[in-house]
Write a protein that binds this DNA or RNA. Structure first.
Length: 634
RNA sequence: GCCGGUGUAGCUCAGUUGGCUAGAGCAGCUGAUUUGUAAUCAGCAGGCCACGGGUUCGAAUCCUGUCACCGGCUCCA
């Protein structure tokens, strides 16, 4: 028989030949590296029997697909080991994921991290024994019987489409319901490690029982595994919670309350710089600033619909002389009230009102996470009131504005989602469709690739979300752009049109950075705490060599301050080496050493955080260079 | 909120099977040193061992409740 290879060449094989035979025919090296195959686009085991005319590709262990298959097999071996060690365990599912794999179990009694070593040991035995993975096709009755003691597997079986065959894989006497494919034998799982155990609801639904999930990872070589573990350690060093403490930027105080960060001087200064930039850019882009109070009568939230649809995220009302007031979870109703304070003409639109608006939302204790998930945060919010004919252009310019902001802060990578109507929502189908279409069209006009996030919209409208990843690769939603036909209706806001009749404006809710808290958290991790010059709370620290250089050092400091640069003078009576070390630890962009040589020459010795010792430079040159660099925001 | 783990000085961590005044390094303070590109030396001070209850002759250590934090799930900017 003949089969076609990916390069369209055709090889001849004996009838009944397997994918592995095909790999062998191509070359011994390929056969050795092979872990699975694709036949006519479908992933199969190497033992898969080929048919005449098949198009075949060999999946090797160093390819992304091969790695995924190996990790999936590692999950299977994990399950083998667990079933051997903990009798009566029920099996959930065990897929490969981005950086490894996991398997969900329901143990007869809880296990903890300390069990991982034992399980890993057992896995090593299984790997060493090189048990082959035996694939079997099962009829439903057989499968039901085989997994009689496995309620979760039964559930999966019951949901398998009738036309699909149930398959199982067996190694070392352990059989798992699994679609496959797997590596040919357990010995092909090279370097692996179990990382953690965590709770996970069966099928990701909190109404379901909670299982114990064991996470692990696997690589083709020990070296790659070690590198991966090293990356995890590096990520820990970039963690904004660690750096926030080290750099004295913020802290979260138990007595103040969980999820309520306190900004220290340096952190607050970074915020101030960002906020100034943000306000300036908004004013330059046709926005006006507004401000609203932090609490509002419960009546406002009833009108807006928050009281009905957003209540679980809102704090309990407080009583003020018999009236109920709510701490705001969103800024929109306040801005709408400003709109509604007088008659609006079509000539005024689009109205663009921006505010760094602090909101408070009830977040369940388990979700809080440093600055990335808090209970009180400041959104870089704005509400645009537009005529229908302006909607699309406005969304497009908001998207362009976002891209500009993210780029300025050094983010070139993000994920874009279009979130559609959730279960709990207000408004007509027609409005939801119009709003969703407007967002979609705009994304396409700008040419941004996006994914649909079904049912993830806000209760009053669909949204575009942009997510940034933290040091550990977890995605955090920052940017949000929402089109809203509903709140204008609920508040009955209008503008007078050219025809002298009242018309309903459409609202765009948008936050470019999302919230300052989350964004700064991401920013800290992005720069690993070493902020670019324009954001650095201290841009240069002056290091006099001895006390007699203090006057000159002060002169240098004064000169740079005159240029609007943020400088500090290290007065400590430490060695130069120590002063440099301290400045390095604080990740100050420039360290300026001044001693006899510099004082005589009227210059400074420049050491940059990024580049090390740069040698002497005149004060004027340095000042000009720093000012330019800060302006360029590089 | 749920599952598992953790909580000792400002920070990072020791603290044997329950048993002496709970230790170290860094940071801080004091003194000496006046220093040339990532740590000068010495001394001092600093702890309701997260908080509350219990077991015990005796608890940082064991049990229990609360709170916070970490990893994950669910949920979100």
């Amino acid at each position: 028989m003949k089969v076609t290879l990916p390069d369209n060449s055709i090889i001849e094989l004996d009838d009944g030949a397997s994918a592995l035979d095909a790999a062998r025919k191509v070359g011994a090296r390929l056969a050795k590296a092979a872990v699975a195959a694709t036949v006519n686009g479908e992933r199969v085991d190497l033992s898969h029997q080929l048919a005449d005319g098949d198009s075949i590709g060999i999946v090797t262990e160093d390819s992304p697909e091969g790695l995924e298959i190996m990790r999936h097999s590692a999950a299977h071996v994990l399950a083998s080991a667990v079933m051997d060690l903990y009798h009566g365990t029920q099996l959930g599912i065990g897929p490969a994921i981005a950086d490894g794999f996991y398997y969900d179990f329901k143990f007869p009694s809880p296990i903890s991290d300390s069990d991982l070593e034992k399980i890993e040991e057992k896995m090593r035995e299984i790997v060493k024994a090189k048990f082959s993975f035996e694939r079997r096709e099962l009829c439903r009755e057989e499968a039901a019987e085989k997994f009689g003691a496995q309620p979760f597997k039964q559930e999966l079986l019951a949901e398998l489409p009738p036309e699909e065959k149930a398959t199982s894989y067996t190694d070392d006497g352990f059989t798992d319901l699994c679609r496959g494919p797997h590596v040919p034998d357990t010995g092909r799982i090279k370097a692996f490690k179990l990382l953690s155990v965590a709770g996970a609801y069966w099928r990701g639904d909190e109404k379901n029982p909670m299982l114990s999930r064991i996470y692990g990872t696997a690589f083709p070589s020990q070296k790659q595994l070690d590198e991966h573990l090293e990356r995890l350690k590096e990520a820990e060093r970039r963690d904004h919670r660690v750096l926030g403490k080290q750099l004295d930027l913020f802290h979260i105080d138990e007595e103040v309350g969980a999820g309520l960060p306190l900004w220290h001087p340096k952190g607050a200064l970074i915020r101030k710089i960002m906020e100034d930039f943000w306000r300036d850019e908004h004013l330059a882009n046709g926005y006006e600033m507004v401000m609203i109070p932090h609490i509002a009568s419960v009546e406002l939230w009833k009108t807006s619909g928050h009281w009905g649809f957003y209540r679980e995220n809102m704090y309990s009302p407080m009583d003020i002389e018999g009236q109920e007031y709510i701490v705001k979870p969103m800024n929109c109703p306040g801005h709408i009230k400003i709109y509604k304070s007088r008659t609006r003409s079509y000539r005024e639109l689009p109205i663009r009102w921006a505010e760094l608006g602090t909101v408070y939302r009830y977040e369940r204790s388990g979700v809080l996470h440093g600055l990335l998930r808090v209970r009180g945060f400041t959104q870089d919010d704005a509400h645009l009131f537009v005529r229908p004919d302006q909607l699309r252009d406005e969304i497009v310019s908001v998207i362009r504005f976002v891209l500009f902001m993210l780029k300025t802060f050094g983010f070139e990578e993000y994920e874009v989602y279009l979130s559609t109507r959730p279960e709990k929502s207000v408004g007509s189908d027609e409005h939801w469709e119009q709003a969703t279409a407007a967002l979609k069209d705009s994304l396409e006009e700008v040419g941004l690739a996006y994914e649909i996030d079904p049912g993830e919209g806000v209760f009053y409208g669909p949204k575009i979300d942009m997510k940034i990843r933290d040091a550990l690769g977890r995605a955090w939603q920052c940017t949000t752009i929402q089109v809203d036909f509903n709140l204008p209706e609920r508040f009955d806001i209008t503008y007078v049109g050219e025809d002298n009749a009242e018309h309903r404006p459409i609202m765009i809710h948008r936050a470019l950075l999302g919230s300052l808290e989350r964004f700064i958290g991401c920013l800290i991790e992005h720069y690993a705490g070493a902020f670019p010059l324009w954001l650095a709370p201290v841009q240069a620290v002056i290091l006099p060599i001895a006390d007699r250089h203090m006057d000159y050092a002060e002169q240098v400091a004064r000169r740079l301050s005159e240029e609007g640069l943020r400088v500090e003078l290290d007065y400590s009576r430490e060695s130069v080496g120590k002063k440099i070390r301290n400045a390095e630890m604080e990740k100050v962009p420039y360290m300026l050493v001044v001693g006899d040589r510099e004082e005589d020459a009227g210059n400074v010795s420049v050491r940059s955080y990024a580049e090390g010792d740069l040698g002497a430079e005149t004060l004027e040159e340095l000042a000009a260079r720093m000012v330019r660099q800060a302006e360029e925001k590089a």
